[in-house]
Design a protein around this nucleic acid. Sequence first.
DNA 1: TATCCGTGGTG
DNA 2: TCACCAAGGAT
Length: 296
Amino acid sequence: MARDGSGPADSALVSALLRWYSTNERPLPWRHTTPWGVLVSEFMLQQTPVDRVLPLWEVWLDRWPTPEALATDSVADALRAWGRLGYPRRARWLHQSAVVITQQHGGEVPSDPEALRALPGVGDYTTAAVLAFAFGQRSVVLDTNVRRVVARTVHGIAQPAPHVTTAERARADGLWPRTHARSARWSAAVMEFGALVCTARQPGCDRCPVQRTCAWTLAGQPTPPVNSSRQAQYEGSDRQVRGRIMAVLRDSPRPVGVVALRAASADDAQRDRALDGLVTDGLVTRLPRGRYALPD
DNA sequence: TATCCGTGGTG
DNA sequence: TCACCAAGGAT
């Protein structure tokens, strides 16, 4: 039977997972905080597990309880506080967003989709997430968890496409509850369900409340096509060297010279390449006489 | 649009 | 051991 994403089976799915969420929701601190607290959490959670974000989010919100507080401090402060969370460009984007919020939005995280989407480091997902989780608005929150749950339970495939397609978004919109409050809660519920039960590797189908109606299970849980594009090797990569350079600069209270950066890579060409990239990305400042530092 | 961007845990 | 995975975004 063809599914258009708005039939009674979908209503049953929504109701069942909302019920599951009512007794399985983790007490994460960003469930009850300010819009700024939500925005910080969303930046930190991009491609980063919850357990690693938790302690750092507490530190950040204590130190910078408002966008203005962060905007007043330097990018270097933000990069040091980001520590080893990964993707330090997120710390810079978050700092830049804090500046924009302070200067253009009166210090308040905007609740307007266009204004949110215009902030550096804020894409389609983060825009939808802030609308739902900070402002209780209806938005179709499509993250990796949500997309996997919908792909399986509704579309009957093990994995969603590599990127969100127009058709996928349209079908999800048909599935999403119409009211603001129910939509926002559903977004959190389906995301939590994907993170805790309908996981990527070993889904807990024995604990799943919608196993009987799951399209993927009914189809015999067909395995996904083999992933043709493999993840690039990290060991020895420019990426690894960039990370090491950032670590040296974070740990140094003053600018460093090339000698200190040799610890990041003994390969002069690779080290220069990585440094150029970091300078271009605004994560490192090149000073006179061959010295380097984190940006002001 | 395919690729790049960090880091650490895991099966 | 090592490839995959984790509340993506920018170019």
